[in-house]
Nucleic acid binder design. Structure first.
Length: 749
DNA sequence: CGCCGGGGGTTCGGA
DNA sequence: ACCCCCGGCG
């Protein structure tokens, strides 16, 4: 719960306190408040600090009121953290800042004007489970086999199109290229219609509909354009085209827009994110001021160097030299294990050892993995070892089946057109309305082109003769719930609904351990609703408002003060940092994921993901892999990840170094390594060395001298400026590819 | 109509 | 290992 505090923050004449302690680049970025600004922020470069101080500075200098400032973040958690930090800087005014994810901010904006687009302001937000379920229903109605046409693929085709603002019609006209896209196009059209009829928006609609709203009702756009005098977008590398366009439109009047991002950490292209947005920004706003935050305050020299060298293997990137003045620190460890079980045990052993030797706590550790399924073995090992842990990600509280069931009743009560909610609860608990009946109803609805709810709630109008009694009773029950929802506050209504729907009784009758926990979860949900109603800050305590407040909530019931090891996917670790980080499952097919090895772009995204993983570590980094892993029910033999080869051996712990080279020798590599890691010895002091001699004149054919390889001749050069690489043939050591900024070459002639 | 068990397919990330 | 679908039976 939020802590209320007294704010001892004085207004200042100059806002000076807000740039105190910042480095020059950071301070420049904070002080550059007007016009288009772009901040390229390397990992661990104090990005959040710059953003919060910049916003605080704008408010402190009275450049704008807090409700004139829009700040878009990537997760709700990030938004909450930032708001708290700004509150500490400038006081309670921070509460009025428009701060949140694109989805939550624009859901809020859409609520206001939903009726302009033909929705009511009680519109439902479909999550991806709802979307997939709707697509399955549509496939069934079209008599299409969902094994040939996978609902998920179709959804991703639709979602992709929407993210590029392509509607069903345009898709049909321009993007039907094969059988799959032809079917996707059909589904797209029906899907769009069904969402609309259900008074529902999916995740993509929350970005697409605002643009539709702005185009059809320019006055709405004008109002917002004038309201948001200052706009800030964090994690800009992860925005998609729709988000990009929204931002552009909103910023068009004041043009005080600041985007923050790091192309090296772009890991959401599967969701339509487009790195090009960063590159396009400077084109759209030619007078963009660009700030680069390149000093890393988070990690040791060794970790920073390793990360830099890893990302150099990518072709697509913005020039940037992340460096640190921190000590070089401990070498990186690589653990080889026989199986996923021994891998887990070795990780636990190392955690125990580090805790003891270095006086660390559980909360100093994070174990990161590529996909959620990998947590199992680690969990078992941690339990056996008696180390407390906490899993982040996976299903959020609101995505659990039992919670979604109750929420579906609540949703249906305030929006009777909500088809997905209706399908979910119409026969749960079992009331004799089976699949046959449901299919009949769905067919009827689609024939008459009306929402499913229209049929169910007016059953006598649509079906003459004998209508099934359970159906009529169900409708009566929901009508009653709707009345309760309108009459009472969220808790009273929800409490009533969960009891009289029979869900609570059904859950209570299940005496298994899982059943008990499901029942408790529902109680927890109800407690949450009660708290919502007791919270003085919520002016509107209606069920409708409650539902909109949880629709996009993916936070876990976290207590960051707990002393527990953190387990999470690398994706969800973005933005976080830990003194000691373990990345497990460094194996081909897993990381990089098998789906990504066929295209360079996908592989580069995996590598950026690896970069994100490595840069989460402050002091210590450990990478592990195993030879045999239990997957899909059987044992699979695994190859070590190609990414391990991209870790400079000079930065890896000596005890395993020989082992490492042995492992690496036996690599089966689908493709030759593009970049060669420079085996520079680890220097004792400040690290890494960024600046060598001025090598800008270096050209092919020149003779050079390397402190270790001796004299050589430059065969070719590639890359530009700070990332320039040279292929050099040395007299004694043969041909090498060196990165100029590390190689410290001397030009002889 | 609903329940149960067998079989086949999947195979990532998440607002 | 899990999820989902389907077919058979009560």
């Amino acid at each position: 719960m939020r802590i209320k505090s007294i704010y001892p923050v004085p207004m200042t004449e100059t806002g000076e306190h807000l740039i105190k302690g910042l480095n020059k680049d950071q301070a420049d970025a904070v002080l550059s408040t007007s016009g288009p600004n772009m901040i390229i922020a390397g990992a661990g470069s104090g990005k959040t600090k710059v953003i919060t101080h910049r916003l605080a500075y704008i408010l402190d200098r009275k450049l704008a009121d807090s409700f004139n400032v829009l700040s878009l973040t990537f997760t709700n958690k990030a938004a909450m953290e930032m708001r708290e930090r700004i509150e500490k800087l400038i006081g309670p005014e921070a509460k009025n800042l428009w701060m949140g994810t694109f989805h939550s901010i624009f859901a809020r904006i859409l609520r206001v004007d939903a009726q302009k687009l033909g929705y009511t302001n009680a519109f439902t937000i479909y999550d991806s489970e709802d979307s997939v379920s709707l697509i399955k229903t549509i496939l069934k109605e079209l008599n299409l086999d969902d094994k040939t046409y996978k609902p998920k693929s179709i959804l991703s085709a639709i979602s992709n199109a929407k993210n590029y603002l392509i509607d069903a019609e345009e898709f049909e006209n321009k993007y039907v290229l094969d059988d799959l896209s032809e079917k996707a196009s059909k589904v797209f059209r029906i899907y769009t219609n069904r969402c609309f009829q259900a008074n529902a928006m999916d995740f993509d609609d929350l970005l697409v509909k605002p643009i539709e709203l702005f185009e059809k009702f320019p006055e709405v756009l004008h109002k917002l354009q004038h309201r948001f005098k200052y706009i800030m977008v964090d994690e800009f590398q992860d925005t998609n085209f729709a988000q990009y366009l929204i931002t552009r439109k909103l910023a068009a009047v004041h043009e005080n827009i600041c985007v923050v991002g790091d192309d090296a950490q772009s890991i959401y292209s599967f969701r339509g994110a487009n790195i090009q947005n960063i590159l396009n920004f400077a084109k759209d706003y030619p007078d963009t001021k660009v700030f680069k935050l390149e000093q890393n305050y988070r990690s040791t020299g060794i970790i920073v160097q390793a990360a830099n060298e890893i990302i150099l293997n990518n072709k697509d990137q913005i020039q940037k030299t992340v460096f640190t003045k921190n000590e070089s620190g401990d070498l990186i460890r690589i653990i080889e294990a026989e199986t996923d079980l021994t891998e887990a045990m070795k990780v636990c052993d190392l955690i125990r050892e580090q805790k003891q030797v270095l006086n660390l706590f559980n909360k100093d550790f994070a174990i990161l993995y590529r996909n959620n399924a990998q947590s199992r073995a680690i969990e078992d090992a941690l339990r056996k070892t008696g180390i407390a842990y906490r899993i982040y990600g996976g299903l959020s509280f609101y995505q659990r089946k039992e919670i979604k069931d109750i929420v579906a009743y609540l949703r249906l009560s305030i929006n009777q057109k909500d088809e997905e909610a209706l399908k979910r609860v119409i026969n749960y608990p079992v009331r004799g309305i089976g699949n046959t009946t449901l299919t009949k109803l769905l067919t009827l609805a689609s024939e008459k082109n009306v929402p499913l709810g229209e049929i169910v709630f007016n059953i006598d109008k649509h079906i003459s003769g004998r209508t099934s009694a359970p159906l009529r009773e169900f409708a009566k029950m929901i009508e009653n719930f709707t009345e309760k929802a309108e009459q009472f506050d969220a808790f009273t209504a929800a409490d009533y609904i969960s009891k009289s729907s029979g869900v609570l009784k059904d859950l209570h009758s299940d005496n298994t351990v899982e059943g008990l926990s499901r029942y408790e979860n529902v109680q927890e949900l109800l407690n949450g609703i009660r708290e919502f109603c007791l919270n003085e800050e919520n002016e509107d305590k209606s069920l409708r408002t409650y539902l909109s407040s949880i629709a996009l909530d993916t936070t876990q019931n976290a207590d960051s003060e707990e002393d527990k090891v953190s387990l999470m996917t690398i994706h969800s670790a973005k933005g976080l940092e830990f003194p000691s980080v373990f990345v497990i499952g460094m194996e081909e097919e897993l990381f990089p994921n098998s789906m990504s090895v066929h295209s360079r772009a996908d592989l580069e995204e995996e590598r950026r993901l690896f970069y994100v993983a490595v840069t989460r570590a402050m002091k210590r980094l450990c990478l592990s892999f195993c030879k045999v892993r239990f997957k899909y029910g059987t044992l699979h033999s695994q190859m070590p990840s190609r990414f391990l080869r991209e870790v400079n051996p000079a930065l890896v712990h000596t005890l395993v170094k020989e082992k490492q080279s042995e492992i690496l020798k036996n690599f089966v590599r689908p493709q030759p390594l593009r970049a060669v890691v420079n085996p520079l010895p680890v220097s004792e002091t400040s690290f890494p060395e960024i600046i060598g001699d001025d090598l800008s004149d270096l050209a092919e054919g020149m003779l050079v001298e390397h402190h270790k390889f001796g004299k050589g001749k430059v065969l070719s050069l590639e890359g530009s400026a700070t990332e320039k690489k040279a292929t050099i043939i040395f007299a004694d050591k043969g041909q090498k590819v060196l990165l100029l900024k590390y190689a410290r070459l001397k030009i002889l002639s």
